[in-house]
Design a protein around this nucleic acid. Structure first.
Length: 469
DNA sequence: TCCCCTCCCACCTTTGAACTGG
DNA sequence: ACCAGTTCAAAGGTGGGAGGGG
């Protein structure tokens, strides 16, 4: 197996030669993904986006909506989204600012949300914007609905994966193209911390229309005011203060970590670096990797991709080690250091092109073992709370029942009934391997793809397990 | 005491079934 | 009988606030 560094080098420098695909190769290097409503995302990002997570699951707002181009019209693709930790810290909201509150908690089960239309031909994806509206976030680690599990007060960013595959079973043999947009990073919270974020959400989210000042919610507000006039008054003062936005409040988070931040006026456009914890980690990340937003934060077409291998969720310790110490993904050994934000670069690696070694399913990866491919090649599993059985399980389960893949939301819950192993099964036999897929890497060096067909191990694990640290 | 989480509430949009008219 | 447009109720998504746990 090739080292990550090697792969990265190959992919980014030599477009089509390295992975010269087989006869049926498709040109994927020209894929382009753009984020819809970039201005909205930016407006949130400038303040420090927060996403509510609840036990039953909460939608994102703004929700992820993208436009695609450069796909082969008749080739089928699967679109997926997962959430990657931005760093190895836990944050707290302290007086208008986000501050680091310690090391991040162990990563929850990694899951990937499969777009309901998957798989669909390129023409389908390109004819209109692709929305991940129904993607939900939860803080319930025992969630059975397939929602993406996150930790509150931790920071994440969504990753979009495009996989050329006829069905979910063949995903593992396909080339993955991964994209991220800096402005989509957010802090998962159970209750909004920054009132400016609350206001933005209310102003833009139709479901929150009832909370708009100029709305018709007079009844609700009136009753509340009557019920607790003092509190209402206090609230009003608070809101007023917010609208007047004290300078440091606006800059909030960033100040702590970015002393160089220019003091900005209200009318100034805020750069993403402003957001403190964020800025710090992003900067660090970019410094080391330079894979994120190569075109700069303001570039519309953030087709910056990180070629990652959706592979298994290698979890932090595991993956981290791969990155930092072992040139070979397959060489594994859990490194405690990797999971620590303090010890270097925790989860930052998650944004980097990576070929994840597939750890052996956690013991809890349970059942479905019968569906799994013998884990003979799998590395030892990392120890920890993570549930590796995750990702596409539900999707596969549903597919199995319905006989049709991708006609409904295919979450990737880590159900006990479906194992990652599903990825192995028939697919392994049907799809010979690596060489039959493409590989023409576009002119853009930042646009990478991975071909992981020869990674047998993957068949046993959740597909994009990003993650984790 | 503080921080964070959970639950419940009222308000709103979305969705889809039922109904109506051409 | 069929189709398109309209109506309406149920389902589901919001943020706020109260209260509780650590």
């Amino acid at each position: 197996m090739q080292s990550i560094r090697d792969l990265k080098s190959n992919f980014s420098i030599t477009p089509s030669s390295t992975m010269a695909g087989g006869p049926d190769s498709y040109h994927q290097g020209s894929m382009l993904m753009t984020l819809e409503d970039p201005e909205l995302w930016k407006s949130f990002h400038e303040i420090g986006t927060e996403m509510i997570i609840t036990k039953p699951g909460r939608r994102m707002f703004p929700h992820c909506k993208i436009n695609l181009s450069g796909l082969v019209p008749y080739a089928k693709y699967i679109l997926l989204v997962d959430m990657v930790p931005e760093d190895g810290f836990r944050y707290k909201w302290n007086k208008d600012k986000w501050e680091v509150a310690g090391k991040a908690e162990p990563q929850p089960p990694c899951r990937t949300y499969v777009h309901p239309d998957s798989p669909a031909p390129g023409s389908h994806w390109m004819k209109q914007s692709v929305s991940f509206l129904k993607l939900k976030l939860t803080n319930n680690t025992l969630d059975q609905h397939g929602h993406i599990i996150l930790h509150s007060m931790h920071r994440y960013h969504p990753r979009f994966h495009i996989v050329q595959a006829d069905d979910l079973y063949s995903v593992r043999w396909s080339v993955f193209q991964t994209f991220t947009f800096p402005e989509t990073s957010f802090t998962a919270v159970t209750a909004y911390q920054n009132t400016k974020i609350t206001k933005l959400k209310i102003d833009h989210n139709p479901f929150a229309k009832g909370f708009r000042d100029e709305g018709t919610n007079t009844k609700r507000r009136a009753s509340r005011s009557l019920a607790d006039p003092e509190r209402a008054a206090k609230k009003m003062n608070s809101m007023k203060a917010d609208s007047e936005s004290p300078p440091d409040f606006r800059r909030s988070p960033c100040e702590i970590y970015d002393a160089e931040q220019p003091k900005r006026k209200d009318e100034e456009v805020v750069k993403e670096e402003r957001y403190s914890p964020w800025a710090a980690s992003e900067r660090e990340h970019n410094h080391n990797l330079h894979t994120e937003s190569p075109l700069g934060p303001d570039t519309r077409d953030m087709y910056n991709s990180e070629q990652l291998v959706p592979g298994q969720a290698s979890y932090q310790p595991y993956r981290f080690r791969e990155y930092g110490k072992s040139p070979s993904p397959s060489s594994s050994s859990v490194s405690s250091g990797g999971s620590s934000g303090a010890s270097g670069r925790p989860s930052f690696e998650s944004r980097v092109p990576d070929i994840a070694t597939v750890p052996e399913p956690h013991a809890s990866s349970k059942p479905a073992a019968h569906d799994m491919v013998p884990p003979s090649c799998a590395p030892q599993p990392p120890v920890g709370p993570q549930d590796y059985s995750g990702v596409f399980n539900m999707a596969m389960a549903q597919a199995g029942k319905s006989g049709v893949l991708g006609h409904h939301p295919l979450y990737a819950p880590y159900s006990t009934e479906q194992a990652l192993g599903q990825w192995g099964g028939p697919a392994a036999a049907q799809y010979p391997g690596p060489h039959h897929l493409p590989a023409e890497y576009g002119a853009q060096a930042v646009h990478h793809s991975y071909h992981h067909g020869n990674m047998a191990d993957w068949s046993q694990y959740p597909l994009f397990s990003y993650s984790c640290w």
